[in-house]
Amino acid sequence: MAEKYSLQHWIQKAQDEHTSLYVIGLQHQIQAMEITAEDLLSKMLTALKVMEESIQTGLIGNRSKGGLVGGDALRIQNYFHSQPERSVAGPVLNRAITFALAVGEANACMGRIVAAPTAGASGVLPGVLFALAEAKGFSREELVPPLIVAGMIGMVIADRASLSGASGGCQAECGSAAAMAAGAIVSLLHGSPEQVGDAAAIAMKNMLGLVCDPVAGLVEVPCVKRNAGAAAQAIVAAEMALAGVKSVIPVDEVIDAMGAVGKCMHSSLKETAQGGLAASPTGLAWTAQLGQST
């Protein structure tokens, strides 16, 4: 069997070659996919364009297909614009959670999104990337290298553990998205390859054990708000890593632990809508109501 992807291996390679993780990832992928760097970068730019559009879709404030979510991103935006002095979070975090909710809501309303890494966790990366772009004036082109770094982290997680709620719980979806986004932030702010690893590790550790318990089986409750939570965790982890805080457990081992926790998780907590919030009295009442409407 081929050796599994290792973020630590790529970090070491970047350090040895005195370059960035982005350069290592770009080289690796254009070789593996047999395409030009120009082609791959243009695909990443397209993904960023769709992400930005999905934020705007969500901010229209429509209700979702199931009717459980919609309008909350707009609510936070209006609150922040009308009473900025009352904001607890401050501009970067406030915008990150606004945008993450917006994409989650767009997804629930059958809008077009980039599944990065999944549709259910599609709000996290656009949330942090475009919040930072707005706050610090980064262009869409400048978001490409961090997106590639996020993709590398996601590939390692997919190979060593899982990105699917059905096999690993929400830690595999929103947890993975948080780790990818944390690494992307560090990359965007020119942290070292090692700091990217620490940020991804810390974000994943703080999401470890999270179950996948969608009410009525729909990608609405609690999925949409968990995207905002994961975006916040990404910012917390990146802030620590950029300040030089290390993860005691190396990033590959954290990812392996996530995979192992996912295997231990009871099937009622892995996207089957049989446990957790889905089995709460209110969750069950919604299930019954939505079932009758079909």
């Binding site: 769709v50 980039v114 599944a115 549709a119 590939m155 990105l163 990818m180 990608v219």
Partner: peptide, 21 residues
């Protein structure tokens, strides 16, 4: 698996299995 499986696909939500599939 490549990076386009992770940063993508671009799809109409809400679910890769119940909508895109």
């Amino acid at each position: 698996m490549n990076i386009l499986d992770i940063i993508g696909p671009i799809m109409i939500g809400p679910s890769s299995s119940h909508t895109a599939g």
